[in-house]
């Protein structure tokens, strides 16, 4: 198993994790009640470790600014207030709109391109296919610093409107490798060869095969790439920093500004961090089942 086999997991990965061990009795076998208690204690301890920041962020976001002093940092708010949320929302609202209008199309377009590419790579063993695959794969790992300045110049020369359009374009292009990879593995492992073969016999061409047969069965693959792309576009900061400005940039830029001032309003910053994270968290909670698969599949992207 290797890089892309880890990614090959795709939808199956989620299923694999969910698959409980075949034998329920395994726990009893060789392990006592005491070891089970220890296991639980450890799990809860780690749970605490993960949730500590969440606790302090949540309570702080409901505090008045007088209440965010060092001494009371870990206490519950003396008086609960929604002001920090209002303040953060006022600042972030236009950024949120831009982020949404950016992440959704970027996710859809790169997924579509990825699925076509993936289908071709998985099913059409032309000479040099491996080289093309490696060629695409490498694009996923590059540090974007290495292309950022010429990219900025290219976009200026092409006269692409700064802001949402620039970022859609950038995320579409640099999202192709990961989407291609996910779909290639998806088609290679999930779609039975016979389906395509039978389509070929009927005389359907590659496009017909793709449209009539492949697209309808690609739904779960799409869910994975859509979630993955949505999350990574939403969370992107580097492209935003280089290619957009405060008045046309996405929410990561807005949060950096909100929390990066000289006189930091901690309560509003924390509320802002939460607001910024909501869309990806909602996606995660609602579609968590797929998300894990998506993470597995997107294994290779940073």
């Amino acid at each position: 198993m290797s890089a892309d086999t880890a990614a090959a997991a795709t939808g199956q990965a989620a299923a694999a994790i969910r698959r409980k061990p075949q034998k329920r009795g395994v726990i009893a076998d060789g392990s006592t009640r005491r070891s089970r208690t220890v296991r639980y204690a450890l799990l809860l301890l780690f749970l605490l470790f993960v949730l500590i920041p969440v606790y302090v962020v949540l309570i702080t976001s409901f505090k008045t600014s007088a209440d965010t002093t060092a001494a009371s940092q870990w206490n519950l708010p003396k008086t609960w207030t929604l002001d920090p949320w209002r303040k953060a929302w006022d600042v972030l609202q236009p950024y949120m709109v831009r982020s949404l209008s950016l992440a959704i199309p970027a996710a859809i377009i790169s997924s579509l391109i990825g699925s076509m590419n993936g289908f071709v790579l998985a099913r059409w063993r032309f000479p040099g296919a491996n080289i093309v695959f490696a060629f695409i794969l490498f694009g996923m790992f590059i540090p974007y610093q290495a292309i950022m300045l010429p990219l900025r110049t290219t976009f200026t020369n092409l006269d692409v409107t700064r802001g949402v359009p620039t970022l859609i374009l950038a995320h579409c292009i640099y999202g192709i490798p990961i989407c291609t990879l996910i779909f290639r593995n998806y088609y290679a492992t999930i779609v039975p060869n016979e389906i395509i073969e039978s389509a070929r016999v009927d005389g359907a061409g590659l496009v017909q095969t793709y449209l009539r047969i492949i697209l309808p069965i690609s739904i779960s693959g799409f869910v994975v790439t859509l979630i993955w792309q949505f999350t990574s576009v939403w969370n992107d900061f580097l492209f935003a920093l280089f290619l957009t400005q405060q008045n046309n940039g996405p929410v990561t830029l807005g949060l950096a500004a909100l929390a990066g001032g000289q006189k930091v309003d901690y309560a509003a910053s924390m509320a802002g961090a939460l607001i910024t994270s909501f869309p990806t968290l909602i996606v995660y909670i609602l579609l968590g089942r797929w998300f894990i698969g998506g993470l597995m599949a997107g294994a290779l992207k940073g």
Partner: peptide, 18 residues
Amino acid sequence: RSIYLFPMAISMIASGVV
């Protein structure tokens, strides 16, 4: 599983602020 995994959904900027 979900709780261990959720920080993954958060942007580095948001987590950096916190």
